Amino acid sequence: MWRRLGHTSRKSAPLPDAAYVELVDMVARPVMPVAFMGIALACVGLLLASRKQDALLLALTLAGIAVDIASVFLVLAYQRRAAQATILADEARGWERRYAIGLFSFAALLGAINARALMMAHPPESSLVPMLTSGLAFVFAGGVVSNVAFRPRLCAVGLALSATPTVIGLVVRATEATDIHILLGFVLQALLLSAFAVVGLLWAAETHATTRRQIISKLDFAKMARRDDLTGLANRVELRERFDEASTRLGPNEYLAIHCLDLDRFKAVNDAYGHLTGDLLLCAVTARLLTMVRREDTAARLGGDEFVIVQIGVRHPDEALLLARRIVRVLGAPYEIEGRSIQIGVSIGVALAPRDGLTLEQLVTRADAALYRMKRGGRGGVVFAEEPPPPSAANDS
C-alpha cells in the first residue's frame, strides 16, 4: 500500500502548477465536512468526558473544538481569497500547509480522545465507550477519505493519526476482556477500522491519479485553445489574457510596450519555395523570437507572418526600442531551411501604455499604424506610434 502511495506521489512530482492549484482548491474549499467533523468530535468527546468525569478528556475535546473552529475560519479565508484573483502555485502551497496543520492537529486530538476513553476502566459489559469511539473514528476516516483523497499524503497522515490510537485502545480493551464474545467484538472493531483505513488510502490513491489525469487533460485542451497551432505561441485569446493581467500590475512609472511585427519578404519565400518552407521559416522565426523575450513577456502570433509582443516593466521608451532593434537584427540574419539559405527582414511598430492607449485594441491599432508607416517609408526598422519613419530605413520592397 505504501509503495502504491509512493508511486502515486512520484507520478505527481512533475504535476503542472495549474493542476496542483486545482487539486489544492478541491481540498481546501469545502467547509461543511470540516464543520461536521468538529460537531461530531464535540458531541462524542463531551459525552465521554461527562460520562467518565475526566478532566483530560474534556481538555482534549475543547482543544479539538478550537482546532476545528480555526480550520473553518481558514477555509472561509481561502474561499474569500480564491474569489478575489487567481491563486498561484507558491501561494497554494502555503494554503495547503496551513490546512494540513489543522487536519493533522485535529486527527491527533481525535485519536488521543479515543485512546484515553478506551484505556480507562470500564465495566466488562459496557459498550458505550467502544461504540462512541469507533463511530467517531469511522466518521472521521470517511470524511478524510472523501474530502482529502485528492492529496493522498494528507489523507494517509490524517488517518494514521486518528485510527492508530483508536485501534491500539481497542486491542488493549480486548486483552482485558474475560468474555470471548466481548474480546472478539473488540478485535473485530479494530480489524474493521484498520481495513477501512487501508481501503480508504487505496481509494484515495486511485482518486488522486484519476483526478490528476482529468485535470491535466482539461488544462491541455484549454492550452490548445489559447495557442497557435503552428508555432506554439500565444494566440489572440491568450494574448488578451496576458495583456489584461499585465495591465492590472502596471506601476505608476512604468510602460507596457506593444510590439507589432510583420515579416518582410515572407510572401516571396512562400511563392518561391512553397507553404511547407514558409511554415518551417515561421517556426525558425519563433525559436529566435523566444530567445529574446523574457518569461514574463508574451509573444503571440496573430496569423500569417504577423506577431505581437507584450513587453512589461518598461521604465523608459528606450527599453522598448532596444528590444525592437535587437529583434530586427536577430530575425534579419540568414536562415538555413531545407538546405537553402533564406534571408528575410522584419518591420516593427511600437505603442506604449498608458501613453498611447489603455486597451489592447487601442494599442495594437496604433502600433499597427506605425508599422505600416514604416512599410511605406522603408522596411526593416522600428517606429513608435505617432513617430515618422527614420530616414535611414532601407527602401527594400
Rank of each mutant, 00 (worst) to 15 (best):
L321P: 00
I342C: 05
V293Q: 01
E336I: 13
T291Q: 10
Y335L: 04
V314G: 05
R329W: 03
G339A: 13
E336P: 08
E306Q: 14
I309F: 07
A287V: 12
P317T: 13
L290R: 13
I312V: 14
L302H: 11
L321S: 07
R295H: 12
L290H: 03
L331F: 08
R288Y: 08
A324Y: 09
A324R: 13
Q311R: 15
A299L: 09
M292A: 11
I327G: 06
E296M: 11
I327L: 15
D318M: 14
R294K: 13
Q311V: 11
R329D: 09
V310K: 11
P317W: 14
I337L: 00
Y335W: 13
V330N: 07
F307I: 10
V285S: 09
I327E: 00
C283W: 04
V285Y: 07
E336G: 07
M292E: 14
P317A: 12
G339S: 12
P334T: 02
T286R: 12
L302M: 15
R340T: 06
E336A: 13
V285F: 13
V310S: 01
T286Q: 04
E296V: 14
R340Q: 15
L289A: 08
L289I: 08
R288E: 00
I342D: 02
V293N: 07
E319I: 04
V328D: 02
M292G: 07
V330Q: 09
E319R: 05
T298G: 05
D297H: 05
R295V: 11
L321K: 14
A287M: 05
C283G: 06
D305E: 15
V310A: 05
P334G: 10
V308E: 00
Q311L: 06
A284V: 06
R288H: 09
P334H: 08
L289M: 15
L282Y: 06
T286P: 12
R295L: 11
M292Q: 14
L323N: 04
R329Y: 03
G339C: 14
F307M: 08
P317N: 04
V308G: 03
C283P: 00
L282E: 00
V314K: 10
G304L: 04
G332L: 05
F307G: 02
